[in-house]
Design a protein around this nucleic acid. Sequence first.
DNA 1: CATGTACTTAGCTCATCGGTTAAATAACCT
DNA 2: AGGTTATTTAACCGATGAGCTAAGTACATG
Lengths: 134, 134
Amino acid sequence: MSLDPLSSTFAALADPTRRAILARLALGETSVMELAKPFDMSLPAISKHLKVLEHAGLISRGREAQWRPCRIAPASFKEVDGWLGNFRRFWDESFNRLDGVLEEMKAEEAAKAPPRSNRKVRVTKEKQRGRTRG
Amino acid sequence: MSLDPLSSTFAALADPTRRAILARLALGETSVMELAKPFDMSLPAISKHLKVLEHAGLISRGREAQWRPCRIAPASFKEVDGWLGNFRRFWDESFNRLDGVLEEMKAEEAAKAPPRSNRKVRVTKEKQRGRTRG
DNA sequence: CATGTACTTAGCTCATCGGTTAAATAACCT
DNA sequence: AGGTTATTTAACCGATGAGCTAAGTACATG
């Protein structure tokens, strides 16, 4: 058992029940009972799902008397987003433009590169989402 | 077999070998042999991984003579990103500010809402990434 | 302390997954 | 045609995953 973090996170997200639980938690912290309600499924099943989500770092759990309230934990979401960022240029128009900075570079490149060029593009691991722009 | 699209996409991403294959494909279209090289694994195993990725909509495959070149397919990545967008406010500082628009609303809310308020927050399904601002 | 409520753990079943080897298919190259 | 190269399919195996029921733990309260 125990895969690398990204693998266990993606694995956790690969289940519709677990994604539904996360969607519910996006509305706010709540108890296991509450989370279980919408599902036609035994409580132990939900408990397992929560364990998986917790292990994946997608939720964290507190203790209040006999309740174990669950809430979204940001870290793993952020990691997934970071990984996804490596591929963002494949679908995100505005990202491809990099807020206009790449415009010039492209123009320069185009000036000296032949058409239909198949040259490789660097993938700049992480950080794509960090442009706060004030 | 055959889960909902998001589930099979996340499931496909939950394997490090498959993610490595995608990382390689981010550098450009290539053959199965080429993709297989870095891995200490039989060719059929790679073939299966590619099938999974294709089924998940993360890659598409062409035909050139005896080669079946693979390339990144954007759609499923985009879907994952869209889903992730529902949770972006949990970790993305700049998103939380919504380019400054929410600033005022928050101020107004704060004026009439009691402290430690636990009120629910709407999650605005999809589209978060669409602000081109070009 | 006994009972109830909120959960978790244990132990089981069945399906799916990731890997294997061996054989099949497909297209090219004499 | 016959061989080589690229890739897939088939058949199998051990491990993991999602569900169940039954039993256990933790806390609260009558």
